[in-house]
Design a protein around this nucleic acid. Structure first.
Length: 514
RNA sequence: GCGGCCGUAGUCCAGUCUGGAUAGGAUGGGGGCCUCCCGAGCCCCAGACCCGGGUUCAAAUCCCGGCGGCCGCACCA
């Protein structure tokens, strides 16, 4: 995504406007029902295409080469699973706010610290408030003794399975991980697995956000591309070899020590590993893999990417080490795209404890409770940033999307809406649509049709003119330069395929003077 | 969730303060004419006052509530 880039505060809004007007995505159900709550979005015809292309890239560049098995688990799971995973404890906070400095605290934790006891999760809100006052607990930050009422925050969606069930017994998953953890044992068995063993999931997840905002950045239902790497922490041998070619590859880190300055350090994988910062070969390898995937395959510029190290306070309850792969835009700053968490044996241990089933597996003649490393891509944010970073505005409005993720590969136009040109154009469209996503249009002027394709990032436009009828050649137009070459229809599928793989237009045919 | 500002065709905007007759424009959309390569021109058509309640002879306009949007704070596993 090199090239000129407009950088104004309007870009975010313009992209949202194009997304809704042209059919990438828009707020779900709002057209008919204005009361539809925020945080739910629908992907339209163009949005689905770009989404599917990103997912395909993930399958082709991550899952297949790494040998990950993709599975699909339910969105709705019994609450016991979330007791084992720690989500019940962490998603139902009872918060109290200091009326003086407006800092919020978990009421049960304040009391547990003060009174040095445990197990206050089940105590009612009113009782917690009463205890705070009775024991004169003060605000740890400002020392004030002026509390708001204790409020309960439910960050998980609950429901009751069973027609006559009244108490919630199921919850919508806030991550796909628990499905993989719960099904790990059988997957391992049916695939005759060895460690490391990789499971992948593409799935919807649900979080009852307090304040969903900024389009696809904060949603209540969203989609994750998760890889769950189960491994033996004692045995890094498979990853020694895999990492070797990338030992000099520079990872971009914002370390905890640099949080205040924002200084990004480019650290070769070798150094990150040997200093102990990235813990082991496996994690180091995956950090390299995902930085390369976002840069080289999805087209995010390196200088807009960084791994931000999360401190102990920020980390999820299950993680012992945690980097967010973040992307930068002038409009909204750094935003997390991929959550890279080293979950240790936290999840399998939790499920072993809760279910009573031993989840340790045999590998190389010994019994191991595997550790879990999990890179989890926020798919919706990734789609949104593809558009945001591709947006260009000069004499035209256009999207410099990577050619491999644009919704349409090519458009086919008759130069004029004359029957003989239309017939020929439809013939070319038929030929190409076997292998490509093709858009056909014959309405309005040719210039207007080019501009419409520019706006949704279609990399190539193919035009049938009167010369086509004489010599079976068409013009091929490059979205980025607006230059054209003339190519034979017979060779078009091959040439278009090369073009979409990144070939320069100039080498593909006879240039046209303009 | 709190505070400030805001909500009119698909999109952008006028009208709201100061209530009044058929809610106006641009752009976009559909159809047609014209046109040999970059949002050209002409004709025709469709399309809106966020939802609910109140005040009033009369509400897009004033009041209340809800929902949503932007900004800030908080939250963000």
């Amino acid at each position: 995504m090199a090239g000129t880039r407009v950088s104004t505060h309007e870009v975010f809004q313009n992209v949202m406007e194009i997304a809704q007007r042209r059919g990438f995505f828009w707020p779900a159900a709002r057209d008919l029902y204005s009361e539809a709550p925020a945080g739910f979005w629908i992907y339209g015809p163009l949005g689905i295409k770009i989404k599917n292309k990103i997912v395909e890239a993930w399958r082709n560049w991550i899952l297949k080469p790494e040998g990950a098995y993709e599975i699909e688990t339910p969105s709705l799971l019994p609450l016991t699973i979330f007791r084992a995973s720690g989500h019940l404890e962490h998603f139902f906070d009872k918060l109290v706010e200091c009326n003086q400095c407006h800092t919020r605290w978990r009421a049960d934790e304040l009391l547990e610290d003060k009174l040095n006891l445990r197990g206050l999760e089940a105590v009612s809100e009113q009782e917690l408030k009463r205890l705070l006052i009775e024991h004169e607990v003060r605000c740890p930050r400002c020392g004030a003794f002026n509390w708001s009422d204790v409020k309960r925050f439910n960050l998980m969606f609950l429901t009751a399975a069973g027609a006559e069930t009244e108490e919630p017994n199921m919850g919508l998953r806030p991550e796909t991980t628990q499905g993989s953890a719960v099904e790990f044992r059988r997957c391992y068995m049916v695939m005759r697995g060895k460690l490391p063993f990789l499971i992948a999931q593409l799935g919807h997840v649900f979080r009852n956000e307090i304040s969903p905002r900024r389009g696809l950045i904060r949603m209540r239902e969203f989609q994750q591309l998760e890889v769950h790497v189960f491994f033996d922490p004692e045995d890094m041998s498979p990853y020694n070899k895999k990492l070797e070619p990338y030992l000099d590859y520079k990872l971009r880190f914002l370390k905890l020590d640099d949080a205040n300055t924002g200084k990004i350090r480019e650290i070769p994988a070798r150094e990150a590993l040997e200093s102990g910062y990235t813990i082991n070969e496996l994690i180091t390898y995956w950090l390299v893999l995902y930085q390369r995937f976002f840069n080289e395959i999805l087209g995010f510029p390196l200088n807009r990417l960084r791994y931000r190290e999360l401190g102990p306070d920020e980390r999820a309850h299950y993680a012992s080490a945690h980097w967010d792969l973040e992307v930068y835009s002038e409009e909204i700053g750094w935003v997390e795209l991929v959550n890279n968490a080293y979950r240790t044996d936290y999840d399998l241990k939790g499920h072993s404890r809760e279910s009573g089933v031993d989840l340790a597996v045999q590998t190389d003649g010994k019994k191991v409770l595997p550790h879990l490393y999990e890179p989890s891509i926020g798919l919706d944010r990734t789609i949104f940033f593809e558009l945001l970073l591709s947006y260009r505005k000069d004499e035209r409005v256009w999207m410099q999307l990577p050619r491999n993720v644009a919704p349409f590969d090519a458009a086919v136009f008759p130069l004029l809406s004359k029957e003989e040109l239309i017939n020929k154009a439809k013939e070319v469209e038929r030929i190409l649509s076997r292998d490509f996503d093709v858009f056909y249009d014959d309405k309005g002027s040719i210039g207007r049709r080019y501009r419409r394709m520019d706006e949704i990032g279609t990399p190539a436009c193919i035009t049938i003119d009167y010369q086509t009828l004489e010599d079976e050649t068409v013009t091929l137009r490059d979205r980025d330069s607006m230059l054209q070459v003339r190519v034979e229809i017979e060779k078009l599928p091959k040439i278009l395929s090369e073009f979409l793989s990144g070939a320069k237009l100039e080498g593909l045919g006879e240039p046209i003077n303009q």
